[in-house]
Design a protein around this nucleic acid. Sequence first.
DNA 1: AATTTTTAATTAAACGTTTGTTTGAAATTT
DNA 2: AAATTTCAAACAAACGTTTAATTAAAAATT
Lengths: 219, 219
Amino acid sequence: MCPNLKDMESRYNEKQVQILAVAERLFAEQGFSGTSVRDIAGAASVNVAMISYYFGSKEKLLEAIFDYRISSTAIQMEHLLSQTQVDPFEKIEMLVDHYVDKLQNNTCFFKIMQSEHMKGHGNKDLDGIIFQSKKKNFDLISALIAEGQKKGLFRKNIDVSLMVSTLVGASNQIYIGQEYYKRLHELDDMPEEKFQQLLKKRMRVFLKNMFKAILTYEL
Amino acid sequence: MCPNLKDMESRYNEKQVQILAVAERLFAEQGFSGTSVRDIAGAASVNVAMISYYFGSKEKLLEAIFDYRISSTAIQMEHLLSQTQVDPFEKIEMLVDHYVDKLQNNTCFFKIMQSEHMKGHGNKDLDGIIFQSKKKNFDLISALIAEGQKKGLFRKNIDVSLMVSTLVGASNQIYIGQEYYKRLHELDDMPEEKFQQLLKKRMRVFLKNMFKAILTYEL
DNA sequence: AATTTTTAATTAAACGTTTGTTTGAAATTT
DNA sequence: AAATTTCAAACAAACGTTTAATTAAAAATT
């Protein structure tokens, strides 16, 4: 369901990709500590020793997942927001669409990211990678907000950190809790694909309206 | 830092409380699977066997934490929103204040809850407890929204699920990522207590404005 | 083109730790 | 005297990682 193998084929060979993809899914489902290297090896149909052989250790396997996933998204974001001809409101919409897409296509990785984020003071390398990623997003969105403010479209005194946390936190919470959404709205009978479309559409509308409201609402 | 022992003293004896409090902190910091019963026993200064003796198993220890924490918050929420003389806008503010307080005083438990929430299909008992809690909150807030709509204060077509997820997700994300907030805003030198006050205040203002905006903004 | 040499991939088995839990005796409280 | 609490020790199972032997692939030499 979760891992989009294609994205990983550039750097790693077939077996490595299989390991990475399976590990990503299992780490998301069971947590890092809750997943054994034998679980991964079994699900990926490779020998246990191959994980050490290819990635050095379980820890470094996690880092390999992070390393790739993060670097691939940073570029897209930058490209997205650097288009000077698009007006700030439209950029906000693009931002939301892009984030929701990413979330839907990389649910497993987002879960892992959230987990590692919560643990904190664990792997120092990962903390560095995550902070750097957050900083970049913060700077890009700060620039976008500033642009909107200069053009008199957005209100003053916007706390960008809180705004980004809201986008990330709200989206993740909705998406991670989609089973609850189903049950609360009695949508269990709906085909999975239809439901995904519905959820995505509603999330987009909701988040876009929310940000427009936050950015223009006067106290 | 995290566990407020007092709340637990009613049901459990001194040693049990110590175990529960320590376990809550360690589960939050390292995850459930990442924490061993020996870690807990060591940090709580009791023998390893005491955990099985008192709680049956590591799994049931987690359930004991959940069982208490959830039942204690549900009542407060109900009491908070049932006051009929308070107007809907004010109730939203009370809701936000209450949630931010809870989050600050029970950070560890919220982290654990988020972790277990993400894993999904794990412990069936826990899944049931969590869903029941979410359902209750959903119903209470739905009633509040309906009341505001009836009085013509809130706009129509509000997706309460998405709204609740936004409150929970955004708050958690901000609070869990407070170290990033510090670093991004260069507030590392500020005394911890001052920073906590600052963050809490900003969160409250931000969330209140956000919900007012969401609830009144017309497309 | 065939053969040898070198490198890489794969394996089952074993390594020493750590895991959650249980035991049965000793200490403490009731 | 009876019931509860505490403890060091032991349990098998699972953990991440390494080893040394074997197979497969690639490169080099004849």
